[in-house]
Nucleic acid binder design. Sequence first.
RNA 1: GGAGGCGUCGCCUAGUCAGGUCUAUGGCGCCGCACUGCUAAUGCGGUUUGGGGCAAAAACCCCAUCGAGGGUUCAAAUCCCUCCGCCUCCGCCA
Length: 433
Amino acid sequence: MIDIALLREQPDVVRASQRARGDRVELVDEAIAVDASRRAAVATFDALRNEQKVLGKQIGPLQGAVKRGDTSKQAELDALMARAADLSESVAEAERHMRDADEALDAVLREFANIVHPDVPVGGEDDFVVIEHVGTPRDFAAEGITVRDHIEIGTALQAIDIERGAKVSGSRFYYLTGIGALLEFALVQLALEQAQRNGFIPVIPPALVRPAAMEGTGFLGQAAENVYRLEADDLYLVGTSEVPLAAYHMDEILDAASLPRRYVGYSPCFRREAGAAGKDTRGIFRVHWFDKVEMFVYCDPEEAEQRHREILAFERQFLDACEVPYRVIDVASGDLGSSAIRKFDCEAWIPSQERYRELTSTSNCTTFQSRRLRTRMRDASGTRPVATLNGTLVAITRTIIAILENHQQADGSVTVPVALQPYLGGRTELRPV
RNA sequence: GGAGGCGUCGCCUAGUCAGGUCUAUGGCGCCGCACUGCUAAUGCGGUUUGGGGCAAAAACCCCAUCGAGGGUUCAAAUCCCUCCGCCUCCGCCA
């Protein structure tokens, strides 16, 4: 949710943001009108309610006097009671109006996505700006290697079992077996260790959350069709541990001295992939479930940009450890999630596809999520919403793809990145079984 | 799944049976001031959160807020209903 004060005081900033995202610009004036009528409704109710309370204070003692037998006050009491009865109806009506106006304002405010950062490249999905390339894709042809994709490699290693995943759970499901399963634990351990060195508190969060948590993090808006819902229990399966980590401090006021707070969560991620029919159907690139280690930071909004860069650096640190070539992109305005003002993606080179694909992603959500979740900070100057930021440390399936494909050898084996070796019992290579 | 208890402004707590002097009590903690070689102690004042008004800030005023929502009433922390959460016991499962 955006700041209503910004809408009142700098509507042009909001208009520019709407324009950059390709969202409706007229929404700004609609919201301003709704805000004005809400304030009028509030003022009316407040005045009537005040009158009612003043009256109530007179009735109390008067009734006490009458009860004690002072019948001289009876007429005065009756008059007041009559007025109070009238007023009661007006108050009730004013309250209904106020409540309707509150809901209307809330509804219109929720239609706004976060205010796009001025440096974000304007445009659609393809209008991103490449910030940097790291590493160089191998020239497999020069090495005399016919590139195999992660399914071929993973099947030979008996690390990935797609067929049985489909048999048991349907398309876009898989089993990780043997070295595949070990690879997950190795990646998770490497990630958690790195994160702890960088000041993150490890968290195993719940992967099922109540509607308020899902709603508050902004996933029931434009992304709703990709969320699994358990109808019988009114719970949602999270698509990322960003959800339980963002909702962790819901309805809390954090001491400014305790910021920034850095959490790193490990959880399964469930995605319906409703809009992606026919897309990336091969292998484990796009699946309904995978495990992920996710960084989440609460900080003073003043520091948000700096913290964002920091998270990006942590993502790069991990990709460097995996020894895969990648590039960093500044995602274009039209492709930002509704909560983010800016998003950097790290895309790894996928040899079988001969292109860069998203492995990790970090978003600066400023105060957008915290307003909905009522997560605030308190310092000498008072209370105000905190900023929240998130970033992937390792999305298991895609990272396994990148490692298997980029480190494949002519004999069918896969070289293990040095940083991962200690977590794989010292293995330097993975061999077909 | 069954039975019972509980939910008050950071923490603890009074108030709920008998609705109106509740503008929610007191303690702890915290902040400010005073006093004091320093610290401690003491005294005084302040200390939920959100919204609205005053052109802006401060001050001030008003409204809402006693787990959430609804109802009864001129009036609800207090009475009634529903829901949520926590605790205890029983059953079931691990």
